[in-house]
Structures are given as C-alpha cells and as structure tokens.
C-alpha cells in the first residue's frame, strides 16, 4: 500500500483507527496490503469480457452459462467464490427484443470478480433510484438510445445474488477471433448501460 500523505480529516481518522486496531493486534498492515493486491489481481472486467466472447463463439458454453453461471465459470478458470461469501451469478442475455440492465437498489452488490471495481455512478442514489422506474431515461443519460419497441428488464441484485448482462454479438464480427471479440466488450455493456 502506498504511503498516505492525504491530510484531509477523514484520511487522518482512517489512519488513527488503523493504528489503534494495529496496536490491539486486530489488523496487520501486511495483511491489508495482501487484501488490496488480491482485490486488484482478481477483480477485473477482462474476466467478464472473456466470458462474453466465449459465449459468443461456443453455443454449448452459452447454454451452460445461462442455465447456471456458477457451474460454467470454472471452464474459464473463474469462480464466484472469491469474495467474502459465495454468490449466485445470473447471466441475463440481451436479444433483439429484450435488453437487460443490472442495479443494486439497496446499495452496491456487483459481480466484482467479473466486472472489476464498481464505478461510483453504479453506487450512486441517482442511478439506483431511477433505473428501476425510468430505465430508458437513464440509458439515454449514457448516450444509449434503444428502439422504442425493445423491452427493458432491470435486475436488482441482493446479498446472495449477482447479475451480469450478456450483450448481443455485434453484426459483422464473424471473422473475429475470440480474443478480438473480447476486446469489443465494455464494462458498461456488462451492466447494460451500453449495447456491447
């Protein structure tokens, strides 16, 4: 962990509490470093991009992923068991008629291991309050206009479950390799605030 030269009141309060817990033997600075290193190493949207690309090229994997994502992820060396408690992952597939969006209205539940650290907007009251009642308006704030006849489904995560969107494979990508397809996917595409 880098040295903390932040002099704001909260930074000082955090330092004080950390020192107190350390003095009581309840935390170990090396352990905190390890926690952060593990977090940075495991939580990456590149994992989600790989899952999507595999589902696009491998029909059998796609079906297994949609039927039970926790059982399909190990095929790519991934799992939902890396966090503080195991989570059930539901992968929801976009089609010509249905577009999916994920949210955690209560707080910030998010598939970190597949999408990386969550953006502040995902945790904001602005997103959490509005996307369930006015999803089309929220998507427009991301510059994403869906056809009026596309149905939008919003999935609200909770303590035991997580959601990830499987975007539609873009047209004209038949010749691309799996790695090239993965490079087309974006974090917002996995949340549903972008098409891919």
């Amino acid at each position: 962990m880098s040295d903390d030269h932040d002099d704001s009141p909260i930074a000082a309060q955090v330092r004080d509490l950390e020192a107190l817990l350390e003095a009581k033997g309840l935390i170990d600075p090396r352990e905190l470093d390890q926690v952060l290193e593990a977090f940075a190493a495991k939580a990456s949207p590149a994992n989600g991009f790989r899952v999507v690309a595999r589902a696009w090229v491998d029909e059998g994997f796609r079906e297994r992923l949609l039927a039970g994502a926790n059982d399909a992820l190990p095929e790519l060396g991934l799992s939902m068991g890396g966090g503080l408690q195991p989570q059930v992952l539901h992968v929801v597939e976009n089609t010509e008629d249905v577009h999916n969006v994920i949210v955690c209205t209560l707080c910030s539940c998010y598939p970190l291991s597949l999408l990386g650290p969550s953006p502040t907007w995902y945790k904001s009251t602005a997103y959490r309050s509005a996307v369930v009642s006015r999803p089309r308006e929220v998507l427009e704030q991301f510059g994403f206009d869906l056809p009026q006849d596309t149905q939008i489904r919003v999935w609200d995560a909770n303590a035991e479950s997580r959601y990830m969107v499987l975007p539609r494979r873009p047209d004209g990508t038949d010749e691309l390799t799996e790695a090239e397809l993965a490079a087309l996917v974006t974090r917002n595409g996995l949340i549903g605030t972008a098409a891919v």
């Binding site: 955090v14 950390e18 309840l26 935390i27």
Partner: peptide, 15 residues
C-alpha cells in the same frame, strides 16, 4: 479516489 478509501476497504475485509 483517495488512498484512505483503499484502506477502509482493506480494513473492513480484514475485520
């Protein structure tokens, strides 16, 4: 956005 945020996250996981 700040180093202290990472410390809070790590402290929570450790506790």
């Amino acid at each position: 956005h700040h180093d202290w945020e990472a410390h809070v996250m790590a402290m929570n996981r450790a506790l």
